[in-house]
């Protein structure tokens, strides 16, 4: 139920005072409400749940988590 899908904002538009946007999910685009991320810009990634963007995806943090995960694998290889 709390499914959130990451997608990239490709356009934003003000619909009678409501911030909406088009979000690209790997080729599939959908209209998404951006009211909860007033600072979101085209090109940025957001997590979308029931047609609402609820959080930004922080690319630097995403990279840091991946590096940490990969380093756990590397140190194992070193031991073997």
């Amino acid at each position: 139920m709390c499914l959130g899908i990451p997608g990239r904002i490709v356009a934003t538009v003000d619909v009678a005072g409501l911030l909406m946007g088009t979000v690209d999910f790997d080729g599939l685009t959908r209209e998404v409400c951006l009211a909860y991320l007033p600072d979101a810009r085209v090109g940025e990634y957001v997590i979308v749940h029931v047609g609402f963007a609820i959080s930004m995806v922080d690319e630097a943090e995403a990279h840091r988590t991946l590096e940490m995960l990969r380093s756990m694998g590397t140190s194992l290889e070193a031991e073997l």
Partner: peptide
């Protein structure tokens, strides 16, 4: 917080 790429400690204050 493992999900730092998406979750901020303070959540979403607008929401």
């Amino acid at each position: 917080n493992q999900y730092t790429r998406v979750v901020a400690a303070e959540g979403n204050p607008v929401a």
